[in-house]
């Protein structure tokens, strides 16, 4: 069973965990980038879904750092916008090869699942 790491600092993290567990994915969660990077190193997952604006270490740094260490990393970036140039951040993550999809909160669960299924199906 494919395993997914969700990095987000708010309630969306728990909602996504339930959504993905319902679809029988194995889910790891971290509440910020620092925690997320540690967890991924200990146990690399098949997919990372990460928020962009986060305390300790933001999404862009997290993706960049993991992307360097793990070239095969696959990421879906999500962001709630706001706070300065958050959308620019989200936009800039598109430049990173590991980011396969990006969504603006609030997204339709359907879209996320579609992306997750697509990304994990390829590896399978």
């Amino acid at each position: 069973m494919a395993k997914i790491l969700i990095i987000d600092d708010d309630d969306v993290r728990e909602m996504l965990r339930e959504l993905l567990e319902r679809k029988n994915y194995e889910v790891d969660v971290a509440s910020n980038g620092l925690e997320g990077v540690d967890l991924y190193r200990q146990d690399p997952t098949d997919l990372v879904i990460t928020d962009i604006i986060m305390p300790e270490k933001d999404g862009v740094d997290t993706i960049y750092e993991l992307g360097k260490e793990f070239p095969l990393l696959k990421v879906i970036a999500i962001s709630g916008g706001g706070r300065g140039n958050a959308n620019d951040y989200l936009e800039s993550t598109k430049m990173l090869s590991s980011v396969k999809y990006s969504f603006t909160k609030p997204f339709a669960t359907e879209d996320i699942l579609k992306a997750v299924n697509e990304l994990l199906a390829i590896t399978d």
């Binding site: 309630d11 969306v12 909602m15 959504l19 709630g80 706001g82 603006t104």
Partner: peptide, 18 residues
């Protein structure tokens, strides 16, 4: 506000869709 609002909306939408 919009940022937090979007996060909250994302949860509401996600749970509601589930």
């Amino acid at each position: 506000i919009a940022h937090n609002f979007n996060n909250i909306l994302a949860s509401i939408r996600g749970y509601t869709e589930m």
